[in-house]
């Protein structure tokens, strides 16, 4: 009886190593030699841009950085671009910007964006913009900021009492904010529970995996506009005509997506073929 001739087989560990190597190559090539693929602007990013552009003169914008360091490259480009745009309005139209973070890591991100990425020349801290640092408590912080601002916010990031910061003295709660915005790395239920009842425009910068999860709120208009992860950040940079991190990364995102789609297609067709042959 002849035994079936078997070809060489790869162990699962070696299969994984080949996959990892291909990932490296697929991501590295567009980094070394940028492909310059076009970045079409999606309607969702255009709506975010228009919503920010339409912020009326003298408005107060409250922005909450709800992300951690681990997703800096995912939502960082959108965060930087959105805050750049709002700071531009602070300069042009006397808009006031209040920024706070929901985590300690988020506070370092806010500090980094304000000091390294934004042009704050000509603006006065405490009168045009203020960084409140980390307000702990999760959903309690979100509730406190719009329910009783003065009790919740005792100091800014540097420990200056809120009573000594001119632009914070008159703020009591949610009614004093004209636009709310936040970034998140996951579910946005907490923000929706505490901020949606205020019926204010809400801007959202979210990672791509969470966009489908947030669609019920987006569809109902509780979230006015959103940025879709790294792609949203790249598109926003294009609209601002200030290429940055997002633009640098988007070629690699395109290539790795193509690689994964091709891999899935090959494996699916192979497994379907095996099922048809009855193996």
């Amino acid at each position: 009886m002849k035994s079936a001739k078997k070809g060489p087989t790869l162990s699962m560990v070696n299969q994984d190593r080949i996959i990892f190597l291909l990932i490296f190559v697929t991501v590295a090539v567009p980094m070394i030699a940028p492909l310059g693929l076009p970045i079409p602007v999606s309607p969702t990013t255009a709506k975010f841009f228009d919503t920010v552009e339409d912020i009326p003169e003298g408005s107060t914008v409250l922005w909450c950085t709800g992300i951690g360091l681990s997703i800096w490259y995912n939502t960082g480009p959108g965060e930087i671009a959105a805050l750049k745009h709002i700071i531009g309005l602070v300069r042009e139209r006397g808009v006031k910007l209040i920024v706070f973070a929901q985590s300690a890591e988020g506070a370092t991100i806010v500090r980094r964006i304000l000091t390294e990425y934004l042009d704050l020349g000509g603006l006065t801290y405490g009168e045009d913009y203020v960084d409140l640092g980390w307000i702990p408590g999760g959903e309690a912080a979100l509730a406190g900021v719009v329910a009783d601002f003065q009790s919740t916010v005792e100091t800014d990031h540097a420990g200056t009492p809120a009573s000594e910061i001119p632009m914070l003295i008159e703020i009591s709660g949610g009614d004093d904010f004209d636009v709310l915005g936040f970034s998140s790395g996951g579910m946005i239920d907490a923000w929706m529970r505490q901020w949606a009842p205020l019926k204010k425009p809400i801007l959202l910068n979210i990672i791509a995996i969470s966009v489908p999860l947030c669609m019920p709120y987006i569809d109902k208009g509780m979230v006015t506009a959103y940025l879709n992860g790294q792609r949203g950040g790249a598109e926003y940079e294009k609209l601002l005509m200030q290429p940055g991190m997002g633009t640098s990364f988007i070629d690699a995102q395109s290539m790795i997506h193509l690689y994964i789609v091709a891999m899935i297609a090959v494996v699916s067709i192979w497994s379907l073929g095996r099922r048809v042959k009855g193996q």
Binding site: V27, M31, I32, N74, A208, I209, G229, M245, I256
Partner: peptide, 24 residues
């Protein structure tokens, strides 16, 4: 499936950021 599609962009975002420095 829609969530999984978005997961790829998020997951790749973790490694793409550092690759930008590491390949130069």
């Amino acid at each position: 499936g829609a969530t999984l599609g978005g997961f790829v962009m998020t997951a790749m975002g973790y490694l793409i950021g550092h690759m930008f420095v590491v390949v130069k």
